[in-house]
Simulated scan of single mutants.
Amino acid sequence: MNEKKYPMTYEEYEKRVIELFLEPGTYTATKKEKLEFIYDELLKNDPDFIRNQYNSDCKSYDNPEKYGIVDPEYIFSDERLDAIPVYNLELLF
Rank of each mutant, 00 (worst) to 15 (best):
E14S: 13
E14V: 09
E14N: 09
E14W: 00
K15G: 00
R16V: 08
R16F: 01
R16I: 08
V17F: 04
V17D: 02
V17L: 05
I18H: 06
I18L: 09
E19C: 01
E19I: 00
E19G: 01
E19W: 01
E19H: 09
L20W: 04
F21S: 02
F21T: 07
F21Y: 15
E23Q: 15
P24G: 06
P24Q: 08
P24H: 02
P24D: 11
G25Y: 03
T26I: 12
T26N: 14
Y27L: 15
Y27N: 15
T28W: 11
A29L: 14
A29N: 12
T30F: 06
T30V: 04
K31V: 11
K31S: 13
K32P: 00
K32W: 09
E33Y: 03
E33H: 01
K34P: 01
K34E: 02
K34S: 03
L35A: 00
L35I: 11
L35C: 02
E36D: 14
E36W: 09
E36Y: 09
E36I: 11
F37S: 06
F37N: 04
D40C: 10
E41S: 13
E41K: 15
E41H: 14
E41R: 14
L42P: 02
L42T: 07
L43A: 07
L43P: 04
L43R: 11
K44G: 00
K44C: 04
N45L: 15
N45M: 10
N45G: 15
N45I: 02
D46A: 10
D46P: 00
P47D: 11
P47Q: 04
P47K: 10
F49L: 03
F49N: 02
I50R: 05
R51M: 12
R51F: 15
N52W: 02
N52A: 13
Q53V: 04
Y54M: 03
Y54I: 05
N55A: 11
D57V: 01
D57E: 10
D57K: 10
K59V: 08
K59A: 12
K59C: 07
S60I: 11
Y61N: 02
Y61S: 03
D62P: 04
N63Y: 15
N63Q: 09
P64Y: 01
P64E: 03
E65P: 00
K66I: 11
Y67E: 06
Y67V: 01
G68N: 02
I69F: 06
I69C: 06
I69L: 05
V70R: 13
D71N: 14
E73A: 14
E73H: 10
Y74N: 12
I75N: 03
F76N: 08
F76D: 06
F76W: 08
S77M: 08
D78N: 14
E79L: 11
E79F: 11
R80K: 12
